[in-house]
Design a protein around this nucleic acid. Structure first.
Lengths: 213, 213
DNA sequence: CGTCGCGTTGACAAGGTTCAAATTTGGTGG
DNA sequence: CCACCAAATTTGAACCTTGTCAACGCGACG
C-alpha cells in the first residue's frame, strides 16, 4: 500500500519515483512567473500559494497547495504564474522532461497525467464561478469548506495562510474576509481555537454549506 | 496544407479524422452540466458558450468557443458544465473513447492532447485574474482584445453573444457592460458599425490595452 | 401595427473597498 | 521570562464602484 504522501507523482511513474527533495523557508519563492519550467513539484509537508500579479500589485491567487498536491506542471517552456511557500515547506521535485519521458513509455499513464491537469482545470472552473458570481459570505464559506475537505474534516482546521492570502484567493480585501469570518463566528458556525486566529473549528458544516450558494 | 478549421482534432489524430458533423440552432443546448460526456466537439462554424449555474440562476460563462476551438473534453464520465450554441453552429464531434484510443496508439500525440487541456487551463488562469482583480472597464477592454485576437484583428469585429452573455463571462451585469462600452465609445476607442450593436470596430488597440490593467 | 427581444441610460441602493485606529499576536533580544 | 517592536487581525466609518430597478428606444417579425 502506498504511503499517503506518495500522491500523484508516484502514481504516474509507478513506484520508481526518480526525484529529489527540497525545502523552502516561509515566504520564499519556489518559482516566479516567466521562469523556465524545469521541474514539477509535489508537496510533502507545508503549503504553497500559486498566483498572478498585475503591474500595480493586485494579486490573484489561483490555488493553495497542501501536502500531496502537485503544481508547476507546464506545457510551455516557462511558468505562467509564481509559487511561494506559505510556511516552511518540503517538496519532492522532478524534471518535467523525465516525467514526460517516463509517462510516454508506460501504458496507461497518459490518462493519469491528463487526469492531473484536468483536476486543476476543474478547480479553476469552480473558482471562476466563485469569483464571478458569489458574494463575500459565500466565498468565505466556500473557502472554509474547501480547506476542510482537503484536510479531511479535522476537528480543528489549521489555516497556513494569512487573511491577505485568503482575500487574494477569493477576490476580496483582507478586511472583508475578516468581517465575513466574524459574521460566521457570531452566527455560531465556527469558532477560533487558542490565541491565534488561524485555527478554526467548524461547528456546523451544513449551515456553512447554506451560506455557500 | 491543412484547412484552417481542421484544428486540434485533426492534429491529434492525424489526417484520418473519424468524426461526424452536427448542427445546432441558435440558443440550443449542446450538452448540460452532469450529462454523460460521450463526445468531444470542435466548432466548424458559429459559436458556443460553456457555463456553470448556481441554484438561484446566477451564471458564470467559462469561455466562448469560436471556429476551430474544441470543448467538451472531460476526464470523468460527465460534463462539469453546460454548453449552448450562441448562433446557428456546426460542429464536428468524436467519441471521447475513440479519441483516447487513437491518441494512445500514436507516438507524440499524448503531448498534443495534453497541450489542448493545458490551453484551457491557461485561459482559466487568466480569467481568474480578471474575475478576481480587474475593474469593470478593465474587464470589458480585456474582453474586446481577446475577441479581437481570436478573430485575427478584423476591421469590423462581430460579437456573436448578447450583452448578458458578455456580462456573465466577465462577472458583471449587462448594464455595467453596456455602460463600459459606451465609455470606450465616447473615449474614441471603438465604434459601433451599422444599426446593430454587435459589430464593433476597434479604433485604438493600444489605448484599449491601457485600460486593461 | 403591436409586441417582443435587445440594448442604452438614469436614479438610487447596496455590498465591498478604502482609510484609519485599536487590539492582538508573534518574534527577538536582553 | 519578560519587554518591546513589527506584523497580523479586527473593527469602525465614509466612500465608491457596481448592482438593481425602471423607463425608453430601436429593430425584427408576426
Amino acid at each position: 500500500m502506498r504511503r499517503l504522501n506518495d500522491g500523484p507523482l508516484a502514481v504516474l511513474v509507478g513506484e520508481r519515483v526518480f526525484s529529489s527533495e527540497f525545502k523552502y523557508r516561509k515566504g520564499t519563492e519556489v518559482f516566479g512567473e516567466g521562469d523556465a519550467a524545469e521541474y514539477v513539484y509535489q508537496i510533502i509537508t507545508g503549503a504553497v500559494r500559486t498566483y498572478k500579479l498585475l503591474a500595480d500589485g493586485r494579486r490573484q491567487i489561483n490555488s493553495f497547495h497542501l501536502p500531496g498536491d502537485m503544481f508547476g506542471f507546464e506545457n510551455g517552456a516557462s511558468h505562467r504564474f509564481s509559487a511561494e511557500a506559505l510556511v516552511e515547506t518540503k517538496v519532492r521535485l522532478m524534471r518535467q522532461r523525465s516525467l514526460l519521458h517516463t509517462v510516454a513509455s508506460r501504458e496507461g499513464s497518459t490518462t493519469n497525467l491528463l487526469r492531473l491537469v484536468t483536476q486543476s482545470l476543474q478547480h479553476a472552473e469552480n473558482h471562476m464561478l466563485l469569483l464571478g458570481r458569489k458574494t463575500a459570505l459565500e466565498r468565505v464559506a466556500a473557502f472554509l469548506l474547501e480547506m476542510d475537505d482537503r484536510q479531511s474534516h479535522p476537528d480543528v482546521m489549521i489555516l497556513p495562510m494569512s487573511r491577505r492570502d485568503i482575500a487574494d484567493y477569493l477576490g476580496l480585501t483582507l478586511e472583508t474576509v475578516s468581517r465575513a469570518l466574524s459574521v460566521l463566528r457570531d452566527d455560531g458556525l465556527l469558532r477560533f481555537i487558542g490565541t491565534t486566529q488561524r485555527q478554526v473549528a467548524l461547528l456546523n458544516r451544513c449551515g456553512l454549506a447554506q451560506y455557500d450558494a
